[in-house]
């Protein structure tokens, strides 16, 4: 299936760009890398630091969890991250209700305000519906978006790849919609490219009542650099991933590969790819060839 190109046909986006790192504005935050990386599941802190560096990401996600009060001597994640350079995006992972997600978002904001980090104003909202699939609960997510927006948050709403749900989240005030490529940590990539593409059309095409600057970040399920390229070529504004880097055999090398894939996909989406065709089109001229063609 060939899905028509999005960006080259859009008059609102430049057809050519010098860099794969064109700035992306999400609410009050502007990032120069379109790859967002998580900080979970690394085998050690040193690997995590090196992988974040290699990924080029400026935004890292974190989770809010109970302090281990009896083991408070150990180093914390906050000791390992360069908070002068990185913007923290706290998530509400593990929440199964809107009310819990709102609580966790407020706890994360209070922590980041203490640290003076720019990430204090936003949250990656996850309201999960099921423990095994970790698929989002659309009803709870929608409810939480309303509460968090009213409380002053820029909400980046993790969602399924349902286009109508994406519209509802935007209409409820979400700063960005983050459709899942496939279930969290599954490594199955972009399971339904057409759905992602329709989300992009509905949210960003002026013809569909969209805003070309409305950020759509593909989140979850990314296993390989080719998945990142696929998401970016579809027209996504960015990709968020964690497990695909953290659980790779060589996380630092994979982080670099994901970074290059993100830039390649970004540029490719705007370069105006050729249409796919059933039959061949010779690259070398027919004119002046010395060979004969059998039967002609």
């Amino acid at each position: 299936m060939q899905i028509p190109a999005l960006h080259p046909t859009s008059p609102d986006r430049p057809a050519t760009l010098e860099t794969g790192n064109a700035p992306l504005r999400i609410g009050r935050i502007t990032t120069h890398s379109r790859l967002f990386v998580g900080t979970g599941k690394y085998r050690d802190a040193e690997t995590m630091r090196a992988a974040i560096e290699a990924s080029g990401a400026e935004i890292v996600t974190v989770a809010v969890r109970r302090e281990r009060l009896l083991d408070a001597e150990g180093r914390s994640l906050l000791d390992e991250l360069d908070l002068t350079r990185l913007t923290v995006l706290p998530n509400t992972a593990g929440c199964f209700s809107a009310s819990d997600a709102v609580r966790v978002a407020r706890l994360g904001r209070d922590l980041l305000e203490q640290l003076g980090n720019a990430g204090a104003h936003w949250v990656k909202l996850e309201v999960l519906g099921d423990r095994r699939t970790l698929l989002p609960d659309p009803v709870g997510t929608l409810e939480a978006v309303g509460e968090l927006v009213a409380d002053g948050f820029d909400v980046l709403a993790y969602s399924s790849d349902d286009p109508i749900m994406a519209l509802r989240l935007r209409d409820a005030g979400a700063t960005s919609v983050m459709p899942a490529g496939s279930p969290i940590g599954s490594g199955r990539g972009i399971a339904n490219p057409a759905a992602i593409r329709i989300i992009l059309e509905l949210l960003q095409s002026k013809d569909a009542g969209g805003d070309p600057e409305y950020p759509v970040i593909v989140d979850a399920g990314v296993g390989a650099p080719s998945d990142v390229i696929a998401a970016m070529e579809l027209g996504a504004d960015g990709v968020l991933l964690n497990t695909g880097i953290a659980h790779a055999a060589d996380p630092v090398r994979m982080a670099r590969a994901m970074r290059l894939a993100c830039e390649a996909g970004y540029l490719g989406a705007r370069a105006g790819r050729i249409p796919a065709r059933l039959y061949a089109s010779a690259s070398s001229p027919w004119e002046g060839r010395v060979a004969t063609i059998p039967g002609e």
Binding site: T39, V62, A63, R65, E67, L69
Partner: peptide, 10 residues
């Protein structure tokens, strides 16, 4: 009472 901090997550 809940006392929380930030940990690695995605």
């Amino acid at each position: 009472i809940e006392i929380v901090t930030l940990v690695g997550g995605g």
